[in-house]
Amino acid sequence: MKTVFKKTPVLTDTIMHYCPGCGHGIVHRLVAEVIEELGIQNKTIGFVPVGCAVFGYKYFNIDCVEAAHGRAPAAATGTKRVNPNNIVFTYQGDGDLASIGAAEIVHAAHRGEKITTIFINNAIYGMTGGQMAPTTLVGQKTTTSPYGRDPEHCGKPIRIAEMIATIEGAAYVERVAVDSTPNIIKAKAAIKKAFQCQIDRKGFSLVEVLSSCPTNWGKSPAEAMDWIKSDMIPYYPLGVKKDITNE
């Protein structure tokens, strides 16, 4: 029989600690599959964040660095400058990247740093117990916005992909989602393109992935995927925000 699909060896055999139905597992797999397909396992360095993906180094079967909260783009810059032939990516959540690490991601893009960022937007802080993130939707209840996010009080959710796309040094920026099989296939294509952008030394690349957090959203895994489609995508439109990789 011919294998249609099996787990990539760029993921270790360690069982991931994520909750059932968590989007992180899907995105980890997509990143690992892309690394395998591009044949770059032996030169890719992964930078994992503080947040739910903090244990990412246990799952990506590559050399990894655990960065301080929000600082992965700066740390990745250090490694990339030492070994420009390495393929360096950061994997960051929305608390890590859009809140505490807002300066680091903006300036990695601003320098046109030849790194790739996979940004997980699940509209909440997962690891710390479901607090409000900069990406939390208006009206969304979290453990620190128990009456729902009030835009008058704490603003409206930040659109990272659109913001990064305005920066000259960014070469490729796309927003994808993992709510359905077709979108997952598109997400993988975007991640592959982002890594290719780095291989071709075109500049900074970022893929924002709308992902689910069933536990902290208080939904079943299936309901959580439905909520990405019904509530997140209308506010965070999918698609390529910037692509100068052909220039």
Partner: peptide
């Protein structure tokens, strides 16, 4: 139909799909 939709969605990479 061996479309592997299940495997591509699985967050834990537990599904292998084969066909003749």
């Amino acid at each position: 139909i061996a479309c592997a939709s299940c495997a591509r969605t699985c967050p834990d990479a537990v599904i292998t799909v084969e066909k003749e």
